[in-house]
């Protein structure tokens, strides 16, 4: 429903080019757009990052609070991921309560981080069953030019990598802040790679016009050891089982390239 109108002739052009192994923006089918990463850009946030994926731009801020653990995980910190489609990011975005697309985005980003066990949540317990650190990851979409999932996952993990937690001690069951910070304990760097299927052909990192034309998209996130940690299919088309396996293999290769960029940044 949130569709920027792509004219029929442009649709045809995009699909025909892809059939010839080319793309409208000059990339090859398996090329990712250029990635620019900045980290620690918001001083008030405990962790932050801005990622540009071509013209797509996403900012993530991490805030840390103390709260109650979930009843079934009394010894673990809590991760909360939220995504905002800020109205300045696209003519299609409107202010107001989050829509299904922003909820899906937040949940897919969350899934990659959670299922790879990237954050050592068991180290974020303060008083078992009572007080734990709550990590808020807020995804802020600033410019939408396609593939928000990958840009947001990337920005989130970079923000978490530079997140600091205040030092504390417990006095009479109360938490007392001490000077200094320690880094958020991380054990993994999940990377997601999204592909679109356009007339049955897979392309990596679809930009907005390609997302308008695609039959379906498939996002696959990988943990450091090359295992898949999250998958989400989107769009109202279908994929064949063969395409899914092909996509997983391409995505794995791409995720390794992207992880190298993240580690170097």
């Amino acid at each position: 429903m949130t569709s920027v109108m792509v004219s029929r002739i442009r649709r045809q052009q995009i699909a025909q080019l892809i059939a010839d192994g080319k793309r409208l923006d000059g990339r090859g089918l398996k090329d990712y757009r250029s990635i620019q990463i900045e980290s620690g850009i918001i001083g008030k946030a405990e962790g932050s990052a801005r990622v540009r994926l071509g013209k797509t731009e996403v900012m993530v801020g991490v805030k840390i609070d103390v709260g109650e653990p979930f009843s079934d995980r009394p010894n673990e910190g809590v991760l909360t991921t939220n995504a905002e489609f800020v109205p300045l990011a696209s003519p299609e975005f409107e202010a107001g309560p989050p829509g299904e697309e922003s909820m899906e985005l937040a949940r897919v980003v969350d899934r990659g981080i959670r299922e790879s066990k990237a954050i050592e949540l068991e180290k974020l317990c303060i008083i078992p069953g009572k007080k734990v650190f709550v990590i808020f990851v807020d995804v802020y979409v600033l410019n939408h030019d396609g593939n928000l999932i990958d840009a947001s996952t990337l920005a989130s993990i970079v923000a978490l990598m530079n997140t600091k937690i205040f030092k504390y001690e417990i006095k009479d069951g109360e938490i007392e802040k001490k000077p200094g910070f320690s880094p958020l304990p991380l054990r993994d760097i999940p990377i997601s790679v999204t592909l679109a299927s356009i007339n049955g052909i897979l392309v990596v990192d679809p930009w907005l016009d390609e997302e308008e034309v695609m039959d379906a998209r498939l996002t696959i996130a990988f943990s450091k050891d090359g295992r898949i940690c999250a998958i989400q299919k989107g769009g109202s088309g279908t994929l064949s089982p063969q395409q899914i396996i092909e996509a997983a293999n391409i995505a794995k290769e791409k995720s390794e390239e992207i992880r190298e960029i993240v580690v170097k940044s």
Partner: peptide, 16 residues
């Protein structure tokens, strides 16, 4: 009938 997958999700950890 079409050998087509229309919903696919995963959480957890698996090798390819």
């Amino acid at each position: 009938s079409f050998n087509a997958v229309s919903l696919l999700q995963m959480d957890g950890l698996l090798t390819i």
